[in-house]
C-alpha cells in the first residue's frame, strides 16, 4: 500500500509547528496504525532525520496512552477502538492521511504528535477516588450488596481509559465526558456516596480551572469514545453537581 502522510511536526512545546508531507510505500493492510508510523520512523532514522514523536504504550487498547487525530477524527475512522487497534486495511492504496495531535488548550503539545494530558490526572486527583481506612479493619468491598444494574453501569463508566478522545472530538474541547465517567463510576456505588458531594464539586472545579471548554451536548464525544462511554454519565454528573450544590 502506497500512502501520503501529512503529519504535524513541532520541535518543542514553545516552537511553532507545521504540517509536513511524507510519502510512504510498502504498508501492509494487517499493520496497525502505530506500526505504520514505526515503519515511517525507521525510514526517517535511516535518512538521518528526526523521527515523529507520538504517544503509545500497551498497543492493545486498554492503557489510554495512544492518541492522534486521524483524518479529522480522534483514533481514526473506526468506532470503539483506539489508534493502536486501528488497522491499515481501513485505508486504501493512494490515500492521503492527515495526522494531528489532539487539540485543546488543556492538552498542550510537547513535541510533534505527543500532548500533555496531565490535566486529566489533576481532575482525577481532585476527587476521583474513594478514601479507605487501611488501619487493619478494612471491610471487603464485596461484603456490601450492590444491585447488578448499578454495578454494570459503574463498570461501564469505569471503562474510560482517559485517552482524551472526548476532548479531541468536541468542537468546544470540553472534558465533561471524561469527568462525568470518573464521577459516575463512584456515584453509582455505596462506597462512593460518602465523598459524593465534595467529589463532584472539586472535580468540576478542577476541570474548569484546566481551561477545557463548555459542553453543548453535541454528542460527538460519545460517538468518538473508544470505550463507548455514554452521555448518560454527563446527565448524571449534572444531577450530582446540582444536588451537591444544594447540599453545599
Amino acid at each position: 500500500m502506497k500512502l501520503t502522510l501529512k503529519i504535524w511536526r513541532q520541535k518543542s512545546a514553545q516552537a511553532k509547528g507545521s504540517m509536513q508531507t511524507y510519502p510512504i510505500d510498502g504498508i501492509d493492510g494487517d499493520m496497525s496504525f502505530l506500526e505504520m508510523l514505526d515503519v515511517l520512523n525507521t525510514q526517517l532514522i535511516d535518512r538521518g532525520e528526526e523521527p515523529v514523536v507520538f504517544d503509545h504504550d500497551c498497543r492493545e487498547g486498554i492503557c489510554g496512552t495512544c492518541s492522534l487525530q486521524i483524518n479529522g477524527e480522534p483514533h481514526g475512522p473506526d468506532r470503539l477502538i483506539t489508534t493502536c487497534q486501528l488497522h491499515m486495511r481501513k485505508f486504501n492504496d493512494g490515500d492521503t492521511i492527515v495526522i494531528e495531535p489532539f487539540r485543546a488548550k488543556a492538552f498542550p503539545v510537547i513535541k510533534d504528535l505527543m500532548v500533555d494530558r496531565s490535566s486529566f490526572d489533576r481532575i482525577q486527583q481532585a476527587g476521583g477516588y474513594v478514601s479507605v481506612n487501611t488501619s487493619g479493619n478494612t471491610i471487603d468491598a464485596n461484603a456490601i450488596p450492590i444491585e447488578k444494574d448499578k454495578a454494570d453501569e459503574a463498570f461501564n463508566a469505569a471503562a474510560c481509559i482517559g485517552c482524551g478522545a472526548c476532548v479531541a472530538a468536541c468542537k468546544n474541547a470540553s472534558a465533561m465526558l471524561f469527568t462525568a465517567a470518573k464521577v459516575s463510576q463512584f456515584a453509582l456505588l455505596p462506597q462512593g456516596r460518602v465523598e459524593a458531594t465534595r467529589r463532584v464539586l472539586n472535580m468540576v472545579e478542577q476541570m474548569d480551572k484546566e481551561g477545557f471548554g463548555n459542553c453543548t451536548n453535541t454528542g460527538a464525544c460519545e460517538v468518538e469514545c473508544p470505550k463507548g462511554i455514554s452521555l448518560e454519565n454527563i446527565a448524571r454528573m449534572n444531577r450530582e453537581y446540582l444536588a451537591a450544590s444544594l447540599r453545599g
Binding site: 487525530q69 472530538a169 474541547a173 481551561g211
Partner: peptide
C-alpha cells in the same frame, strides 16, 4: 479552549 484549530476536523461524522 482550542486556540490552535485542526487542519482536518470531521465533526459532521459525530454530531
Amino acid at each position: 479552549a482550542r486556540a490552535i484549530r485542526y487542519k482536518s476536523y470531521k465533526g459532521q461524522l459525530s454530531s
